[in-house]
Design a protein around this nucleic acid. Sequence first.
DNA 1: GCAAAAGTGTTGGTCCTACACCCATGA
DNA 2: TCATGGGTGTAGGACCAACACTTTTGC
Lengths: 245, 245
Amino acid sequence: MNDIDSIAVPETTLIKDVHKLVASYPRVPITVDCVIFGFDENELKVLLIRSDLEIYKDKWSLLGDFAADNEELTDAAYRVLQQRTGMTNVYLEEVKTFSNPHRHPGGRVLTVAYCSLLNIEHHQLKRMDNELHWHKVQGLTNMAFDHKEIIDECYHWLQKRIMEHPLGFNLLPDKFSLRELQNLYEAILNVKLDRRNFRKKFFAMDLLIDTGEYEDDVPHRPGRLYKFDFKKYECSKRKWSGIDF
Amino acid sequence: MNDIDSIAVPETTLIKDVHKLVASYPRVPITVDCVIFGFDENELKVLLIRSDLEIYKDKWSLLGDFAADNEELTDAAYRVLQQRTGMTNVYLEEVKTFSNPHRHPGGRVLTVAYCSLLNIEHHQLKRMDNELHWHKVQGLTNMAFDHKEIIDECYHWLQKRIMEHPLGFNLLPDKFSLRELQNLYEAILNVKLDRRNFRKKFFAMDLLIDTGEYEDDVPHRPGRLYKFDFKKYECSKRKWSGIDF
DNA sequence: GCAAAAGTGTTGGTCCTACACCCATGA
DNA sequence: TCATGGGTGTAGGACCAACACTTTTGC
């Protein structure tokens, strides 16, 4: 116990009506925005929708929504994901708050950005929704609001995070070859990696399960297919300190 | 440019009145809470204030305030710091949003937690404010709201962050001995470190400036005093990838 | 048989860890 | 002179980077 606890409580006026107190605070509309990354054709993609605001006609927007009453923001982000991609059990993490009072043309709106990683093949894109498209992360233009900035922040966050934890597997199919895995890392980090050292590193982690299967639709010698051992990783997460390249 | 950009815009109804749109969003009171760490007597401390709510009488609270209209949250956090400690130029970084609808007894209040590191000696504590106290981070009890949880999150964040970047210097006086620096790291990480290896590691970083001065009020051989080269660090920050212990 | 990628081991160097002794100062 | 922490160097091991050739498959 802290020694400080024994200090006498001074005679100040304590606030009794907490509801009144809270009612006196300024209120702000809150949204969540999901930066949903996918990996396809050896490129990192982000899922965007056409803006439905006249003022941003022909511009692209992140998937987001305002937070409902009594909804935690993380729940709101999962809800957006579920509604837009039909997927649950998606990797999702909070990245940063964006609170510039002028970021929304309709008045102050605060947004919390979430980064999400999903396997593009699992995702049926709710094809009816033809306003949704996967865009290359490199060279994005034409974004509504401050969404370019939000994507940039999330992309940098991802580059850093993927060195610390093996998140990349969330972007791959259940079964993947080491070549695909390496392509993924090369695409995200924007570097070339040595193939043998890369394989050694991942085998050394001991989180890959050999399926015994092989690629089949490739015009060259097929590679062995692996699964990621999510369970084992969950158990050993605590001691995790990083992946170096 | 993305190939997608050439897709025809479908005939949907675009929203014209963005102010009306924003006005229809639910609104939430927003606060910032600052987890202000200091280092004193070889222990990591956090700056707390007695809660001014009747319901949390005799409990401790983080320093926070609601965000004013048109105030960025980071600015609000700096404002809180300035008002409470009199200090500007303090290290400050956003950590996480806490949005549980029941976290505040007066109704929904969303808070964004900031982690701040300051040199406890620079801080005059505005002594008149006898409601402010430095508490040991270890063994905190008796916290108002979800502030224990917020402190825990920030403390873990700090443990991780201090391995990646040399932030610890923000907690030390301008001039410090290597022993003090090591005590700081040991206190934060809660480990024992080898003295020789620790010194080698920090000298190898080449971010310490030898002042040529020595400690003077110690009951043993005085240690050499160093300054941290903040400028040099700022320049080389980009390539920074971590400190290993 | 040729193109394309899969698969595999070794070596040298770097960096980290572990560890023990003498030195300067105050009391 | 003693107690306390300051200051230093080295040897062994772990880990990482760099690097080339053989294998398998599709065409």
